[in-house]
């Protein structure tokens, strides 16, 4: 069982590094899919079955597929990314390492978690999560629907193409297209 944990942890860390280091955004998204699937494996290992299913459906099925759609629709593979200067990159890696060390040092002494002996194995099942969700957390659950509605309206309003703000298109592009139509048909 411990080997399974280490295998999943190695997959998570390596694919997370691939996400950061890959040149093409498509490769990053595919590595992130693998990373999230391994995290779902961790959830199953912790017997959080409901969250494992929701994680696979929401992240891998919805969010990452949406990202793949956006990358492919915007033709983002052809864009050459300008790299940050070397000093910035080295400093970023040093900062990340320092953060890791500080988090480790902060929890090394103060964290003495004793696992209770008579603990409940069915805490992550659908029944328990549903009871907790609809009894203790009913108000946040309903408020999150308002959040979703506002996010949906906001996304539509942002991505809607309206003629007034789009300054990059030359104003003469539309009549040119209209003129080209009859000429082609006449010729």
């Amino acid at each position: 069982m411990q080997y399974l944990f280490f295998l999943l942890a190695a997959i998570s860390v390596i694919t997370a590094l691939v996400v950061v280091a890959a040149k093409s955004p498509i490769n990053s998204v595919i590595a992130l899919v693998l990373c999230f699937l391994s995290i779902a494996g961790h959830y199953i290992l912790l017997n959080a079955q409901f969250l494992a299913m929701v994680h696979v459906i929401v992240y891998t099925g919805a969010i990452l597929v949406l990202m793949l759609f956006v990358i492919m629709l915007l033709n983002m593979n052809t864009i050459v990314e300008v790299r940050k200067p070397v000093i910035t990159r080295i400093l970023a890696v040093v900062t990340g390492g320092l953060l890791f060390l500080v988090l480790l040092a902060a929890t090394k002494q103060g964290l003495s978690v004793d696992v209770p002996t008579g603990f409940d194995p069915g805490v992550g099942l659908v029944k328990r999560i549903g009871m907790s969700l609809f009894q203790d957390f009913l108000l946040p659950f309903e408020v999150s629907s308002v959040l979703f509605l506002s996010a949906m309206v906001g996304a539509m309003m942002l991505a809607k193409k309206d003629g007034t703000e789009n300054v990059n298109l030359p104003p003469s592009s539309e009549p040119d297209l209209r003129q080209a139509g009859p000429n082609d048909s006449a010729a």
Partner: peptide
């Protein structure tokens, strides 16, 4: 911190 591509 490292990348400049916004989707990454």
């Amino acid at each position: 911190l490292v990348r400049r591509n916004i989707i990454i």
